[in-house]
Amino acid sequence: MSENEPLLSVRNVEKHFPVTAGLFKKQVAAVKAVDGISFDVFKGETLGLVGESGCGKSTTGRLVTRLLEPTGGSVEFEGRDITHLSQGKLRPLRRDMQMIFQDPYSSLNPRHTVGAIVGAPFRIQGVRTENGVKKAVQDILALVGLNPEHYNRYPHEFSGGQRQRIGIARTLALKPKLIIADEPVSALDVSIQAQVVNLLEDLQKELDLTYVVIAHDLSVVRHISDRVAVMYLGKIVEIADRKRLYSSPMHPYTNALLSAVPVPDPKARKERERIRLKGDVPSPLNPPPACRFHTRCWKAQEICKTVEPPLETLASGHSVACHFPENAPVAAATAGEAGKD
């Protein structure tokens, strides 16, 4: 981590997908997939983005890589506003910003060889390599732990873990600065997950990469991230460095998420106190007003239904959007006691 300028800076970004009806495709509603989120990603760090399905975490990944165009707000990469750049102007940027996809089965073209898949970025970007594209591709294959002799093989000849390595090799081809990984290990077996997680960490050290890791698995995110942002229904509800977020989570939703993760320790199941959330995540088509979590929150009061809590940053660097945060810092607690006197 560093104190310098953020590599990626996201401000109040929104993505509303229109819902149309009738002959003239009149817009009748909007799915507010991402509804005004802001965060920074600094050089060399890993930001984890967690949340349940439908919370907008994948949409966020696609917005910052400009695979989708935001309907509001701004995205800055290395200080340059890329929110509404045209495809042509975006192309040179794609070198610096790459994406790893979730499903290693559908994200590789089955009719292309590994050489063609990993070499495609060189051809598309017109990059000249010293000893030819083939040599460059083979170097990258070796880097991600694949045999360089697999150059002429097809994706179906590989296992899931190896395919994910091919996907990673492709993103690394042009030596990007920022990699957005959308559920990079969730489709893999447990023993293979660990291999890929270790690989991502090694590559980060070796190539000085910056990651945004999008995942629903809280334990994987804790392992890999320096800072973690928790999303709920298109909003960031809490963002903090890893240690603080997992040891003293402030937002009730984060608390509930953490306590819901089953722990592989049979004795702990009897001792552990669990927070049980009722119901499902509401539809982003019609999210609850004000604090979006109030319908499932056990601490909710009148104010939560009328006033939206802003994402406030505390002195500790911990940001939370809640009227009644848990584990509130000592300063607030003593103020409360002073009030009693």
Partner: peptide, 24 residues
């Protein structure tokens, strides 16, 4: 190997996971 491969929320985070080499 299975126990070592899993990142766990109930323990302090480690530097590295201990995966099983190869694939099933």
């Amino acid at each position: 190997g299975l126990l070592g491969s899993m990142p766990r929320l109930d323990r302090e985070p480690t530097e590295r996971l201990l995966p099983i080499k190869g694939s099933p």
